[in-house]
């Protein structure tokens, strides 16, 4: 990561549509600068074959990568966002939602369901960065909570893959309350002796990090993912000094004792299965 990239605000890290969701056959890896064949990169789990840069992926792709083929049974997909505050900034939230729904074909920024991971039954919930930066509003919070409750009831290991800009501002206080709601549900899962593996991917920040994402019994992070509470730009503005290289990246969190392992994408499935074997019921 260049210095410039590591100090950008996460709000600016929205994948520029041209580079991150490439249309052409070839694309330039933002990390090593090599021209890579798109199909080869995709076949490589959206990881650069040259430098192992982990491209950002949506929830559908994530589920495809983690769940045994054909085993994913979506749940809670009937929840739709509303606009309780009639929020309007430069654009109305209601319009934003509609536009995002049309663009992505999804209701909101989360996909949940039961599946098998290498033959082990699990509840798998993935945030989706492509929908409003994976931000957590009521639908995301409710879906996460229902997956936690469902995992608790069914005695299933729970895997949540996070990637999010944080709480969704357009639902203000109600978004904030999703942090308490999801964390409280995890207390019950914990009381019941259930296993929760939290997987942090690029980027996981704000209210998502400060609630369920950091509450895993075991926490994995994908290599070089930006993970933090405050965005780098906010921190830099506050402390008025350069941030060290690699600050708030997975490897930094590992060194700081905040995550259990940094796991490359190609190992994620087997590492999940391994922990489930040790800790799952």
């Amino acid at each position: 990561m260049t210095q410039a990239a590591s100090t950008r605000s996460w709000t600016e890290l929205r994948p520029a549509r041209k580079s991150a969701i490439p249309e052409g056959l070839w694309l330039r890896c933002p990390s090593c600068g090599q021209m890579i064949y798109r199909k080869q990169m995709e076949a490589n789990l959206h990881v650069c074959p040259e430098c192992s840069h982990h491209f950002r992926i949506g929830a559908v792709e994530r589920v495809k990568q983690l769940a045994d083929t054909g085993s994913f049974q979506p749940m809670f997909s009937n929840l739709r966002p509303t606009d309780p505050l009639r929020f309007k900034d430069l654009k109305a939230y209601a319009e934003r939602l509609t536009a995002e729904q049309i663009r992505t074909g999804q209701n909101d920024a989360v996909l949940a369901g039961t599946c098998f991971i290498k033959g082990r039954p699990a509840m798998l919930t993935c945030l989706d960065l492509t929908f409003m930066m994976g931000s957590m509003g009521s639908v995301v919070g409710e879906t996460i909570t229902r997956s936690i409750e469902s995992a608790t009831e069914q005695g299933l290991p729970l895997v949540i893959v996070s990637c999010s800009g944080g709480a969704r501002m357009q639902e203000s206080g109600l978004s904030l309350m999703q942090m308490a709601k999801t964390s409280a549900a995890l207390a019950r899962l914990d009381d019941a002796g259930g296993l929760f593996i939290s997987v942090l991917t690029d980027p996981t920040t704000g209210g998502v990090t400060a609630s369920f994402a950091m509450l895993g019994d075991v926490i994995f992070a994908e290599p070089k993912a930006l993970i933090g509470f405050a965005g780098p730009r906010v921190i830099q503005q506050t402390i008025r000094q350069e941030l060290p290289e690699g600050f708030q990246r997975s490897e930094f969190l590992l060194q700081s004792g905040l995550v259990d392992r940094v796991v490359a994408r190609q190992d994620l499935r087997s590492e999940l299965a391994r922990v489930i074997d040790y800790a799952g019921k």
Partner: peptide
Amino acid sequence: FRRMGSFRQE
């Protein structure tokens, strides 16, 4: 806290 949030259920 469980009941907080606003969404529609289809």
